[in-house]
């Protein structure tokens, strides 16, 4: 199991489209993937839960990845956050 922190740096935060992209990426992996904020943990493969986090720019989320492909899965998720979900700002 891997636990790391990810930082939201895109202007709009973890809004609906970004969340959809995250679900898309997370669903490509076998591992269980969870994101948490203030002790609330949600499944990263499911969009409604992600939206409840209502995470804005500047927020740091906990990422927990557990499974056979946890290394590549966490790398992919981290780079998605670093890449500002491909939004460029």
């Amino acid at each position: 199991m891997k636990t790391i922190e990810v930082h939201i740096s895109n202007r709009l935060g973890l809004h609906a489209r970004a969340a959809a992209k995250l679900v898309h990426t997370a669903s490509e992996y076998e591992s269980d993937i969870f994101l948490s904020l203030n002790q609330e943990e949600v499944n990263a493969k499911s969009i409604l839960g992600l939206l409840t986090l209502a995470a804005t720019k500047g927020t740091t989320l906990g990422l927990r990845v557990d499974g056979v492909d946890e290394d590549s899965a966490s790398r992919a998720i981290v780079s998605l956050f670093e890449d500002k979900f491909g939004e460029g700002e």
Binding site: S46, I47, L48, G49, L51, T52, A54
Partner: peptide
């Protein structure tokens, strides 16, 4: 439900 998700289904 989570307060933000009441009566929503995806």
């Amino acid at each position: 439900a989570h307060e933000r998700l009441a009566h929503f289904l995806e």
